[in-house]
Write a protein that binds this DNA or RNA. Structure first.
Lengths: 205, 205
DNA sequence: CGGTGAACTGGAACGTGTTCCTATTTTAGA
DNA sequence: TCTAAAATAGGAACACGTTCCAGTTCACCG
């Protein structure tokens, strides 16, 4: 794996030389988010995204090789924003469990305030296949980072293997719960409950 | 909710009066499994299923209102078979954790022996939306039943709320791990490892 | 047995993701 | 500044999920 970037992957921000290209990428993701939050997964139609981003269909596919790549990349951007926003706010709670629950609930609440968008991004994430592995991995890292930060609010010496495992389990449950909510199988309250129970089960200080 | 069954759902076996209909349904699911295990999700094309099942396309849609319904129903049937097969075999292991791990690993191994089929069924399961809630729920029940049975091998008096929560968490992790494997993000070994770690974390006897 | 409505067949047609092609514009280097 | 290469526009074409319809067969009731 040398310098040349992604063969079948989304163009990352770093790969884009010109400002015009960065701007195009931004416009595309903005259009994606706008359409998604208005009508969910089905409303994110490639022709509509291209039109709203003022870009040709072929160009859209040059930046994002599939609808799934597009949506997962949008998820990644949103997640990064959330993560940065959260980074400064002090997480309240005395125990690790309390802090993790608080952080996750805050995030969950944020997603639930825009159900259509959440539906679109979550479905894309779950439907992604091997070709989206890189983007998916990024999101996974962000998620476990968010959890471990809540576990150890101050810059911490070192994460043990168990810490990472715990964060991973919590991430898994959170995703499953989110899918359940997105697909209308569980209510918002149940979703929060399910996450809380899992965290307390795994994080008994 | 009166007697009339599902408006937008798959025709359940019980709803089918004639033997010919039961047979058609079986042929359709057989064709689905065959195509899926040969080429995965993408190979399960509705026209191909119809042809291989010797049924008209319209009839296929009469039995299963979408590709997702079709695949989730296939998953349900496979899962029921697995569950029944497992029901008799005694689960070995001294602790609940050991037994659950053993049972899940056996199931996982079974799925990994037919990767394409597993990919097709898992992707469908994760992509399913609200209209498939009924079928999804069935599968979820089977899964937690499998886990709780491993926890308490003998017919047990009563499951506590915590028991159910534990089973649910384990189910969530198992699904996430499976998705990771299906999408090529984690190897088979890592998948088993991840499940084992989670179970031991949640089931400390 | 005849009739009636449901189920099935065969296939056309439509929508949306994806691919592909040509003409035009932008960018980078000499 | 001029030129070659890369990127973009615009849009046709294709694949597959889904819908729909006309004609036929099947199952059940009188």
């Amino acid at each position: 794996m040398g310098v040349p970037v992604s063969s079948a992957n989304s163009l990352a921000v770093d790969d884009l030389g010109s400002a015009a290209q960065r701007d195009r990428r931004k416009r595309i993701l903005d259009a994606t988010i706008a359409l998604a939050s208005q009508g969910g997964f089905d409303a994110v139609q490639m022709r509509a995204v291209a039109e709203q981003a003022d870009v040709a269909l072929g160009t859209l596919y040059r930046y994002f090789p599939s609808k799934i790549h597009l949506l997962v990349s949008a998820l990644q951007r949103e997640f990064e924003r959330t993560e940065i926003a959260l980074r400064d706010k002090p997480v309240d709670g005395d125990t690790a469990a309390d802090r993790v629950i608080s952080a996750l609930k805050r995030t969950t609440r944020g997603m639930q305030s825009d159900p259509q968008l959440t539906e679109a991004l979550t479905r894309a994430f779950m439907f992604a296949d091997a070709s989206v592995a890189a983007e998916i991995h990024q999101v996974g890292m962000l998620l476990t980072a968010m959890v471990t930060r809540a576990m150890y609010p101050e810059g911490h010496e070192e994460l043990t293997d168990e810490d990472v495992s715990i964060a991973q389990v919590i991430g898994d449950v959170w995703l499953s719960a989110l899918v359940g909510w997105v697909t209308g199988r569980t209510s918002a309250a149940e979703t929060g409950q399910r996450i809380e129970v899992a965290v307390r089960l795994v994080l008994r200080d």
